[in-house]
């Protein structure tokens, strides 16, 4: 009787964990797809990636128990799946040393920042820049969670994100993110 009870409990536990994963997958499906697109660069490959990753996630023996952890884990599963498909070269590009933005007075035309320009700007970014913005801003992960997904230190997330946002600003402005004095003379 006790042996049966232990077996039953472990089965219930396994199914509970799978339910957590499935629920997270359903709730995060659109954002996961957005992340897949940012990784793959095209929707067709992204569809294949998210389907494959979902099957792997649902078939995992010991997924995280907590929904928040499970959600970050799902993104990591998909990213690892993407890396396994031979995209390591792109990942290594993310390790390039970021360049500090120019210091000094700031003049940026905030009026240019709108949903459509941000969307277009994101499309122009390098995949590793788009990825970090996708994780933190669109998917809503904290730095620590993004670090876990990317398997890098939190400090790397900070620097990568700040450079990616600068690149996004430059993309929106068409490369006119400049110190105040210079921009005054050119506008």
């Amino acid at each position: 009787m006790l042996a049966w009870r232990r077996t039953s409990d472990s089965l219930w536990e396994e199914r509970h964990l799978r339910d957590v994963v499935e629920q997270c997958l359903r709730e995060s499906w659109s954002r996961l797809f957005g992340y897949a697109v940012s990784l793959c660069g095209d929707r067709e490959t992204a569809r294949d990636l998210i389907q494959s990753s979902a099957v792997k996630a649902l078939d995992t023996n010991a997924p995280p128990r907590e929904p928040a952890a499970a959600r970050a884990w799902l993104f990591r599963v998909m990213r690892n799946d993407w890396i396994d498909r031979g995209r390591r070269a792109t990942v290594r590009a993310a390790d390039r040393e970021p360049v500090e933005p120019t210091e000094g007075p700031w003049a940026y035309e905030d009026a240019r920042i709108a949903a459509i320009t941000v969307r277009q700007g994101l499309d122009r970014l390098e995949p590793y820049q788009r990825e970090i913005i996708e994780l933190v801003d669109l998917a809503g992960f904290r730095y620590a969670e993004a670090a876990e997904i990317l398997e890098v230190p939190v400090g790397t997330v900070m620097s990568r994100l700040s450079r990616a946002r600068l690149a996004l600003l430059e993309a929106i402005e068409g490369g006119k993110v400049t110190p105040l004095e210079r921009s005054r003379g050119t506008r």
């Binding site: 996961l32 920042i113 949903a115 994101l122 809503g140 946002r165 600003l169």
Partner: peptide
């Protein structure tokens, strides 16, 4: 910039679950 990025809708062409 963050506010606009956060407000971007997720893609609608996701495959079926």
């Amino acid at each position: 910039l963050k506010a606009e990025a956060v407000g971007l809708p997720a893609p609608t062409e996701a495959p079926p679950f």
